[in-house]
């Protein structure tokens, strides 16, 4: 994928639920000066993660804490670069485990929690944006007896 594909979309903030989260989580509640940016990396290939981390860290890392939201299992990449990340199970994982949890409800709720937790000043999307990701989450399927 070329560099163009990486260009961040600095569009309007992704739609957030109308109501504010019930409680303020605020991971940095005791450090009010600390601000955060969420960078979503959904559907991104593992090799490209390194570059995106480098790029975004250079861009925003000085002023903000960057939290990467990934569906990749390759955590060491983030670890090696001291990058903070949150994980959401990929579309494939959701499909595999659709009978165990109601993904669309859970992930929607999770997203709101993450927003409340990090209180990001920006949400930057690489790859698939979060709304599409959430919308595509399957409902709970009936378990078939083995």
């Amino acid at each position: 994928m070329g560099i163009f594909g990486w260009l961040p979309h600095r569009g309007p903030k992704p739609a957030t639920p109308d109501d504010a989260p019930e409680q303020t989580l605020a991971i940095y509640a005791s450090q009010p000066a600390q601000t955060a940016i969420i960078v979503t990396l959904i559907g991104i290939e593992a090799e490209q993660i390194d570059e995106i981390i480098d790029v975004t860290a250079r861009r925003f890392g000085k002023k903000h804490k960057i939290v990467y939201l990934t569906d990749s299992l390759d955590f060491m990449r983030f670890r090696d670069r001291n990058a903070i990340f949150e994980y959401l199970p990929s579309a494939l994982e959701q499909k595999l485990h659709a009978a165990e949890i109601c993904w669309n409800a859970y992930l929607a709720r999770r997203w709101r929690l993450l927003l409340s937790k990090w209180q990001p000043v920006h949400v930057i999307s690489y790859g698939r944006n979060i709304d599409a990701f959430l919308a595509a989450a399957p409902p709970m399927t009936v378990r078939t007896d083995r």
């Binding site: 605020a26 991971i27 940095y28 509640a29 005791s30």
Partner: peptide
């Protein structure tokens, strides 16, 4: 993060 904040989350 502060452990207390973190625990809340």
């Amino acid at each position: 993060a502060d452990p207390e904040d973190w625990n809340t989350c």
